[in-house]
Structure formats: C-alpha cells, structure tokens
C-alpha cells in the first residue's frame, strides 16, 4: 500500500532537484505547546535547513499554526499558552528567558493565516518594519525599500498609484501580498508563512510561489499549506503533522513519492479521514 504511486500532479515541479545538504537553521527539540492545559502539539523534533523551503502539511486543527508561532515566540502573546522544549536558531537557544522576543521577531518574519494589514496606508504598512528597526536612513531609502518589497511581493503594479490609500481597502488577495511585502521589507532570516495563498487566485499564487522560490536563495522559509501540489512545487522538505504530533518529515520528494507512515500516505493521497 505504501508504495502506491503518488498522484503525478503532486510530483515536485520546478523546485528542482532535492536540496543539497544545507546547514540546519532551526533545530526544534521536544517542543510541546498547550493552551490552558490542552495539548496542541506534542514533543515535536524537527530540523529546518537553511536556504530552503519547508512545507508543513496536515489536517485542519493539527497544530500547524501553533508550531509556526513557536518559531517566533508569538505564542508568548497568547494568554494561557505554554511552550516547553528547546528551539535553536543558528545553534542559539531562542526559548531562553534572556532572549529578547523583539529581536527574535525581527529575525523571524511572519505572514499570518488571515491577512492583517495595519489600518494605515499601503506605504506605511510596508515602511513600518524598516522604520521601527531603523533600516532606512533617508526618506529616499525608505521609499526604495517599500518599492522593492512591493515588487517582490508582486503587488507594485497594482498599488503604485495608490500608495497612500489605506491598506485595509485592498482586496483580500492584495492584502495577503501586502503583508508579505511588509514581512520581507526588513530582510528577516527566516520567514514563516501560514497559508499565504489561501485567498489568492492562480496567477497571484504563481507570483507568490516565484517569490518564495527566489527568497529561498537567501532565507529559510517555513510555509503552511493545504495544497499538496503547492507543497510539492515549492518546498524541498515537508513535514506532516497530525493531531498535534509530527508524523513524518523528510525531503518533499521522499514524502510525496515514498512516505514511510501510512497516515502520511493517506493524507497526501486524499484518503485521510
């Protein structure tokens, strides 16, 4: 059964060959998260390599977003949420008390499941990060950063005439790209994306996938997706979560062609349930 051929469409497309051995960027050991005592993810161990894309897949409610939030310690901001375990970025423990989560979050950018632009102009949305971190010395530099970020997120042509319109007045898909632009504007080392393409049409999705592919050259990207084909297209590694447990992780090719666990197999072939 486990050797059942996988849907051909789910085969890795332009992600190219399996990744070369990359240094481990994020090392997750025994991470357990619970909300008000109810366990959401349980003893997760995973290594996320640098300069590559890792997909997190799994059924709804299995803890994908929760896992993502561990990596930039956004779980700290949720009352009742407790995280235990050990997370190292570049071998540095980021769960330690003395690590400044503000510093961490500047290094680890995040795109949320629901687009959440600030109720400010498009320009200010993208400029916010560079401004608070002091990345632009002059207004021209700031404008430059904003334009580049918007271009990379594939939004520039649509908003270049309306930079001073409120970000919240954009369409859902445009908002999604706006928050991506906002996240990459400060050049984070790791980018966490929680279903960034769930509200996008195929063209915009393709653009974001191109962006992710391009960002992979320099960054470590972790993306949650419900689209098997997307995971196959863009990621080099894939992790499958189910009911709070990391079931299986490996190269995308291996997970999609030759999953070791039966649940993985069922899930990616659509027989989960």
């Amino acid at each position: 059964m486990m050797s059942d051929p996988i849907l051909p469409s789910a085969a890795p497309a332009h992600a190219g060959a399996a990744p070369q051995e990359q240094a481990v960027k994020v090392r997750v050991r025994d991470v357990t998260v619970s909300y008000d005592g109810a366990m959401a993810i349980d003893s997760v161990n995973i290594d996320i390599p640098d300069k590559s894309v890792m997909s997190i897949i799994g059924p709804s409610g299995c803890g994908k977003s929760t896992f993502l939030r561990c990596l930039n310690r956004m779980n700290d901001t949720i009352s009742g949420c407790s995280v235990t375990g050990d997370i190292r970025i570049d071998e540095e423990d980021v769960t330690a008390r003395n690590v400044n989560p503000v510093m961490l979050r500047a290094r680890v950018g995040m795109v949320f499941q629901e687009p959440n632009p600030f109720p400010k102009t498009v320009f200010e949305n993208v400029a916010y990060g560079p401004k608070i971190h002091g990345l632009a010395a002059t207004r021209a530099e700031l404008e430059d950063i904003v334009e580049t970020s918007l271009r990379r997120a594939g939004l520039w042509d649509e908003v270049k005439d309306g930079l001073h319109k409120p970000g919240t007045s954009l369409s859902g898909g445009q908002q999604q790209r706006l928050v991506i632009a906002r996240a990459i504007a400060i050049n984070p080392e790791i980018i966490l994306m929680d279903e960034p393409c769930s509200a996008l049409d195929p063209i915009a999705t393709a653009r974001i996938e191109e962006l992710i592919d391009e960002l992979r050259q320099n960054y470590c990207i972790v993306i949650v997706t419900h689209s098997m084909s997307q995971a196959a297209r863009i990621s080099q590694n894939t992790a499958f979560f189910d009911r709070g447990k990391l079931i299986e992780t490996g190269t995308t090719e291996q997970i999609f062609t030759n999953p070791r666990d039966r649940r993985t197999h069922d899930y990616i072939t659509g027989r989960y349930g």
Binding site: T77, R105, F112, F118, Y128, G129, I132, A183
Partner: peptide, 15 residues
C-alpha cells in the same frame, strides 16, 4: 490581529 501584526514585525509592546 493588529497587535499580532505589529508584534510579529518586531515592534515592542510599547510601540
């Protein structure tokens, strides 16, 4: 979500 967005950008709580 606004607070989350700002915090995730690396803003301090005061910011």
């Amino acid at each position: 979500s606004v607070r989350q967005a700002a915090l995730a950008m690396g803003a301090t709580r005061l910011q």
